[in-house]
Design a protein around this nucleic acid. Structure first.
Lengths: 245, 245
DNA sequence: CCCCACATTGAATCCGCAG
DNA sequence: GCTGCGGATTCAATGTGGG
């Protein structure tokens, strides 16, 4: 049985067709921030928004980042409801968000049928300072469960705070790529040998982390370009791993 | 002119009578968590909820912690609207909350007329681990501004997250007392010599921090017992400070 | 009045070079 | 080849100002 699969296509279409129920759904959807504040509401694409002027790198853009806040909440709750149907009872959902979308994301999580169980802040360590105010240095992971969460045996105790800088330089494939070290902490919410599902796979970091921690991975990615990049990273990750006993 | 004042009484009544406009409103309202989840909805008082079984200390209980979530949001937005009227344009509001009430608190902040500007996580460092899940080790400070925030001269750059453990042992007067070190970072959002307002003064930590950072303080506290304790701490804090030039 | 270009700040991290 | 240091680079922005 392969320890990972990556589908390319529309997540809402593909989710009902998966043949394994997930033990954890871990996603990093486009945040769609900018619906609230005038300075950001310029119809910018993700690249224009997130990449600073002098950092002229050539990472491909990503779609799905132009909804307004109601649209975002509605879209995300549909996705999370579909995820619930694709997840085992007791499974967990972990959803990344920034500060501005945190309340909307918690609404979507609960509207999707998940029980909200907490927030795990992620400190990015490299962030621009804010003049005359507090630096916006953290992103947030919202934790939900499908009913009562699964008991682990032996019990595990996971951190309530994550730290790690975004990948830089050659290792970086996606604009908003998460550090593998951070993801490795998160995938442990699925039991060993369990399945982690990410329907917003991007460059496949969730999968790389899942494999490194001895979990299976099912990914969905809309963009062909990113799906290809993710497959490459996943193949490399399997080679690196010692064969299972 | 005294550098601090502490009123005892009902905040909603007293707020309109204050004779100085605040440069920063910093409050730590009772979180009212537990309105949603059955396990917590046992008619517990604040002491029963926040004080663990074996920590048998004799801190007085505090009121206002039995609203349901709608009531909490409504009450908090009224309080924050009254705070806005008591604050200078450009002033900031900083409101403490736990993870469960964060979305409701952001609603209340914005309903009260403040512009939401960010979240500052406070990492408590001493927190119980969570079995088979992520530790809940953070509380959160929501940052809002009365219109465009005041410009500081010279500019200041404040941290994006806070760390500090809750006071323990003899130094602790209030059940949910915040560390002075954490509060000192926060009061700096008011310009030097500006006025910090806290209508939920409790044991007066906000005031102690404000004085330590060279800001004036106006506090309101409903309970006579806590008001007295706060006055003692504030007097001691002034004695410790070198006299103003 | 709307829209776009650009300067900006501190800290973490990277990179290249020297020892 | 490894380590240590110093300068360069970057940051899931935001505010300002000009066209």
């Amino acid at each position: 049985m392969p320890s990972w699969t990556l589908h390319q296509g529309d997540a809402l279409t593909l989710l009902p067709t998966l043949d394994t129920l997930a033990d954890a759904v871990i996603v990093d959807p486009p945040y769609n921030s900018g619906g609230l504040q005038a300075a950001q509401r310029r119809g910018q694409s993700a690249r224009g928004k997130y990449v600073s002027g002098d950092a002229n790198h050539l990472l491909p853009d990503f779609g799905g980042d132009r909804r307004d806040q109601r649209g975002y909440t509605y879209w995300l709750s549909s996705m999370l409801a579909a995820s619930l149907a694709a997840a085992r009872p007791g499974a967990s959902a972990l959803v990344f968000t920034d500060w501005a979308q945190l309340p909307a994301t918690s609404d979507a999580l609960q509207a999707g049928g998940w029980v909200w169980r907490g927030i795990i802040p992620w400190r990015k360590t490299i962030a621009r300072p804010t003049r005359d105010g507090f630096k916006r240095e953290c992103e947030y992971v919202l934790w939900g469960s499908h009913g009562e969460p699964t008991r682990h045996a032996p019990s595990i105790y996971l951190p309530g705070w994550l730290e790690g800088s975004q990948p830089r330089g050659k290792g970086r494939v996606h604009i908003t790529q998460k550090p593998v070290a951070v993801m490795r902490q998160l995938v442990r919410i699925a039991p060993e040998g369990g399945t982690v599902l990410d329907w917003c796979a991007g460059s496949g970091t969730t999968g790389v982390a899942a494999l490194a921690e001895g979990r299976r991975f099912v990914g969905i990615e809309a963009s062909g370009e990113y799906a290809a990049a993710a497959r490459q990273r996943l193949m490399a990750a399997v080679d690196k791993e010692p064969a299972a006993a």
